[in-house]
Design a protein around this nucleic acid. Structure first.
Length: 703
DNA sequence: AGCACGCCGACT
DNA sequence: GTCGGCGTGCTC
């Protein structure tokens, strides 16, 4: 029925529908009609007040009049997000099957999403006369940049990449810069950023980890005398808000950030750079499970400008896209300066005596490198002291109460911790199974390695880099600085060592256990361990000193491992991609995962069985009626949609929840999405008593 | 999703 | 007698 204007609002709640409101009492009809989509509106919602987003102003509503409430107030007169960003967010909502209100909310800093906080910054600014950059996180860094070093010469490969990308400027295209570790990818980025700055265009530069922002920012500020914005979750909300505004109002020319920065509004975007594009940290876990790289590509497409993906070890999806000429690829095959790429040797540890997992051959090498005043870097992907705490008398293993996982033994303080739910308990002396005092630790983690090596190499400093040692703010920076001082030392670390930090004095890199990754169960585990080995190896021999890389394995004849160390990542990936293709996994199919979790055993599985039952009919109808046309004959081979499972999660019980999953697999994206849409509507009607569910598009792993 | 409402067990 | 457990149902 026709009444005065209705505000159709997207709310940040897990509901796939909009809510209609009457105008705020103080607002005239005329003013309402001038409103544009994306404007924030404060509305009453059940018993609370929340910030929603205007989708449209309508003349009609299907909601009974008595149910309509007045909006409380309009928070913006004009949308804070540019139209093209709104277009992107609509796409995100459709692609990830997430409610638009939730998607929009993630694109705003928390201070602009809260009902109780008005823009504190602007009030403070007015009161004490601070400039807009006053609260920003970048001001100190700008003051630090005093020296302007000479610009390095580009080699042929670098120059070709720069030339070609500049040639294709001002239009959408995806470029892949595949350069070996230390090949000067950053210098290519800097030349392109320089070009964008000359054209007064803004650059969005994404890195996978917060810890990588300082080195990126320092490279940028020593080179360019322009204001930067920094955006990641390690900053305070005030800083995030200030830098968000600085990007939005074009006061910042370059934005450096982690995955959440992909949503930052830009006035004049000209280029996006995704550094270390293979890194799974670009994938958001929990909430809206988006992939910042994929989103950035869509963002560049909508804004019609180039995007550059850089990595020594590109993701298989990315390689495949380059192989299919969807992306243009450039190789950087030589290291910058005189540095040479270290040779990787496999060290057969079968039947060898191992000390904390180290063979005597490796121990000798460590000693040699330390004597030659080199640094040694040891990669062990197992944190804590020991992975098991068990009873010698009866075999009892200390379990986590909330997960199907053993507790890990930690030291300083001695404790048992769960690596999946974070639970921590005191060490027991007596076995809970047989009451005897014969408990001992089995296996070794980074803490034990540190302890043993400190004793083995007296007088040599040992630094441990893992999530436990770097949890405190600034701790990682301090540790990195100590290592970068260059004195002979041993660095022991987990994944952090694969993250692009610089260790110029490292001459020996050793991967303690390559086998764990090679035989992982996930379809991506081979890809990830290949990337890990190459990235960790790449830490060696960056400066003048030549490097050596040792990989310990019980499978020295593993074909793909040999391909990797002898022929390199590129030919390893070609081989591994063929295996992917045979198995039909991404990028040769598209996946979505329906996860369910319940506090009660079996309920998640029962729920998914029920869903599958209902969807199977639908899957068949898809086969005979693909939505592209209305053919009535069945599509034989391959089936357009497969529903696999449900199966219990690999670790069925985690943090007190029993988990299961149902996998959707399709060879065409449209088919997957059409079915997910129908599935989602079904899910909302089914009574899911005490079962939580979530739909994840493009899962990285099937957990 | 939140958050209220509602109906049954152990506490000041 | 109440505090609180989470089952159910609704949000313009």
């Amino acid at each position: 029925m026709a009444i005065s204007p209705i505000l159709r609002i997207a709310l940040p709640v897990a509901l796939h529908r909009y809510f209609d409101y009457l105008l705020p009492v103080a607002l005239s009809d005329h003013a309402a009609l001038a409103l544009r989509q994306g404007v924030r509106v404060l509305v009453p919602f059940r018993s609370r007040q929340i910030v929603g987003f205007l989708v449209e102003v309508s003349e009609t509503t299907a909601v009974p009049l008595e149910k309509l409430k007045n909006a409380i107030t309009l928070l913006d007169t004009a949308p804070l997000l540019p139209d093209k960003l709104l277009t992107l967010l609509h796409w995100v909502s459709r692609y990830y099957h997430a409610p638009l209100g939730e998607v929009l909310a993630t694109a705003f800093p928390a201070l602009l999403r809260r009902a109780d906080v008005k823009d504190k910054i602007s009030r403070k600014r007015k009161s004490n006369g601070l400039s807009e950059s006053g609260a920003s996180s970048t001001v100190d860094l700008l003051l630090e940049s005093t020296e302007l070093p000479s610009i390095p010469h580009l080699n042929r490969e670098q120059q070709d990449a720069v030339d070609a990308i500049i040639q294709g400027w001002n239009q959408f295209k995806v470029y892949l810069l595949q350069g070996v570790t230390g090949s000067g990818k950053t210098e290519v980025y800097l030349r392109l950023i320089d070009y964008a700055l000359q054209l007064k265009q803004q650059v969005l530069f994404l890195v996978p980890e917060i810890s990588l922002t300082p080195q990126t920012v320092s490279r940028l500020t020593t080179r360019f005398n322009v204001p930067l914005a920094i955006f990641h979750s390690g900053l305070t909300e005030q800083q995030r808000l200030a830098d968000w505004h600085r990007a939005r109002t074009e006061k910042a020319a370059i934005v450096v950030g982690t995955r959440s920065a992909v949503f930052i509004p830009l006035q004049t975007p000209g280029l996006i750079i995704i550094d270390e594009e293979h890194d799974s940290a670009f994938k958001q876990e929990g909430g809206i499970a988006y992939h910042a790289r994929d989103l950035a590509i869509m963002r560049a497409k909508i804004a019609n400008h180039p995007i550059l993906l850089g990595s020594a070890t590109p993701a298989f999806e990315t390689l495949w896209n380059a192989d299919c000429n969807r992306y243009q690829r450039f190789f950087l095959s030589k290291r910058a300066g005189n540095a040479v790429l270290p040779r990787i040797q496999l060290l057969d540890v079968r039947a060898q005596k191992l000390t904390a997992g180290l063979s005597s051959g490796l121990l000798t090498k460590i000693q040699q490198h330390l004597t030659a005043r080199g640094q040694v870097l040891l990669f062990l992907n197992r944190r804590g002291f020991a992975p098991l705490y068990l009873c010698h008398a009866c075999g009892w293993i200390a379990p986590c109460k909330h997960c199907d996982s053993p507790l890990r033994l930690h030291q300083n303080p001695s404790s048992l911790r769960c690596h999946h739910c974070g639970d921590c308990q005191k060490l027991m002396e007596i076995c809970e199974g047989c009451q005897q005092a014969q408990l001992f630790d089995l296996g070794h983690g980074t803490q034990k390695l540190e302890k043993i090596l400190t004793a083995y190499f007296p007088g040599i400093a040992c630094f441990r880099l893992d999530t436990d040692s770097t949890r405190k703010k600034q701790r990682l920076t301090t540790l990195l600085k100590q290592v970068q001082a260059g004195e002979p030392c041993i660095v022991i670390g987990t994944q952090i060592l694969a993250k692009g930090h610089h260790f110029p004095a490292v001459t020996l890199v050793a991967i303690i256990d390559a086998d764990a990754g090679l035989f992982g169960s996930g379809f991506r585990s081979l890809e990830h361990s290949g990337q890990l080995i190459i990235q960790v190896a790449g830490r060696a021999g960056r400066a003048i000193l030549p490097g050596e890389v040792v990989v310990q394995t019980h499978h020295p004849h593993h074909p793909l491992l040999n391909q990797l160390v002898q022929a390199g990542y590129e030919s390893f990936s070609q081989l591994a991609l063929q295996e992917r293709q045979r198995a039909g996994w991404p990028p040769f199919s598209h996946l979505a995962l329906l996860r369910a979790a319940s506090r009660h055993p079996n309920q998640a599985m029962d729920f998914l069985h029920q869903i599958k039952q209902q969807l199977s009919n639908l899957a068949i109808s898809t086969a005979i009626n693909p939505l592209i046309g209305s053919y009535s004959r069945p599509v034989a081979n391959p089936p357009p949609l497969k529903l696999l499972g449900p199966i219990p999660a690999l670790m069925e019980k985690r943090a007190g929840y029993y988990r299961a999953q149902l996998l959707f697999q399709a060879h065409k994206r449209e088919i997957l999405h059409q079915n997910l849409q129908i599935a989602r509507k079904k899910l909302e009607t089914i009574k899911a008593k005490s079962v939580r569910w979530a739909l994840e598009v493009d899962p990285l792993e099937l957990i």
